[in-house]
Simulated scan of single mutants.
Amino acid sequence: MSKQKKSASPSRVSADLPAPHMVRFKGVPIELGDKTFIFPPLNLGALEQLQERLQNFSADTSPESISVVIDAALASLVRNYPEITRAEIVEIIDLGNMLEIFQAVMDISGLRRKALENLDKENQPAPEVAADADPSTGENSTPI
């Protein structure tokens, strides 16, 4: 019997990746094609390996800048999608999303992710406060 080789095609970019609710690390969600990927911040090991290149990043379309974005995106995504490859990353990043992805990966403090989480919370109705509540404390006012 002959074994048939499975060919990897660009259309398989993220077909085997877990759903967003199964990710291990919080991050910034970015829709790429028909999938939403969660980009967590770089871990310290990746930051150490990429540090010099990241410091020299110039946000242009030079080969070095493009390579840095691809490698940083891979280091980020592999935390939540261990089976993703550099070849798959190359297929999902383009000039239109390159800087957005780089900013998500470099969300070192988690500020962007936290802002997105807060936006979700703001879209929920606010709790009601009693009509005679003190606006500074939320406590009911007592007459003097």
Score class of each variant (00 low, 15 high):
1 M>R: 10
3 K>T: 11
6 K>V: 09
9 S>F: 10
9 S>D: 10
10 P>L: 13
10 P>D: 00
11 S>Y: 07
11 S>G: 05
14 S>G: 15
16 D>V: 10
19 A>M: 06
21 H>M: 02
21 H>P: 03
21 H>N: 11
22 M>V: 02
23 V>G: 07
24 R>D: 07
25 F>W: 11
26 K>I: 01
28 V>R: 10
29 P>T: 05
30 I>R: 09
30 I>G: 05
34 D>E: 15
34 D>I: 00
34 D>F: 00
36 T>N: 01
37 F>K: 00
38 I>C: 01
41 P>N: 04
41 P>F: 04
42 L>D: 13
42 L>Y: 10
42 L>M: 09
43 N>R: 12
45 G>P: 08
45 G>F: 06
46 A>G: 07
47 L>G: 11
48 E>Y: 12
48 E>H: 10
48 E>I: 03
48 E>L: 13
49 Q>S: 12
49 Q>F: 00
50 L>T: 09
51 Q>N: 14
54 L>Q: 05
54 L>N: 05
55 Q>D: 13
55 Q>R: 14
55 Q>V: 09
57 F>Y: 15
58 S>E: 15
58 S>R: 15
60 D>G: 14
61 T>F: 07
62 S>E: 03
62 S>D: 00
63 P>S: 03
67 S>T: 08
68 V>P: 01
70 I>A: 04
72 A>H: 06
72 A>I: 00
73 A>E: 06
73 A>Q: 09
76 S>V: 02
77 L>N: 06
78 V>L: 01
79 R>Q: 15
79 R>P: 00
80 N>A: 08
81 Y>F: 11
81 Y>H: 00
85 T>F: 06
88 E>H: 07
90 V>H: 00
91 E>M: 07
91 E>K: 09
92 I>L: 15
93 I>K: 04
94 D>G: 15
94 D>C: 04
96 G>F: 05
96 G>A: 08
96 G>S: 15
96 G>H: 06
97 N>V: 12
100 E>F: 13
101 I>N: 12
102 F>N: 14
104 A>N: 08
105 V>I: 12
105 V>F: 08
105 V>P: 08
107 D>Y: 03
107 D>M: 08
107 D>L: 08
107 D>N: 12
109 S>K: 15
109 S>R: 07
110 G>V: 03
110 G>P: 05
110 G>W: 10
113 R>A: 12
113 R>I: 02
114 K>Q: 15
115 A>Q: 12
115 A>K: 01
116 L>F: 07
118 N>F: 08
121 K>L: 10
121 K>N: 03
124 Q>F: 06
125 P>T: 03
125 P>R: 05
125 P>M: 08
127 P>G: 01
127 P>K: 11
129 V>G: 06
130 A>L: 13
136 S>C: 07
136 S>Q: 09
137 T>W: 03
137 T>G: 01
138 G>E: 00
138 G>D: 07
138 G>R: 05
138 G>P: 04
138 G>Y: 10
139 E>A: 14
139 E>G: 02
140 N>W: 02
142 T>I: 10
144 I>Q: 01
144 I>D: 04
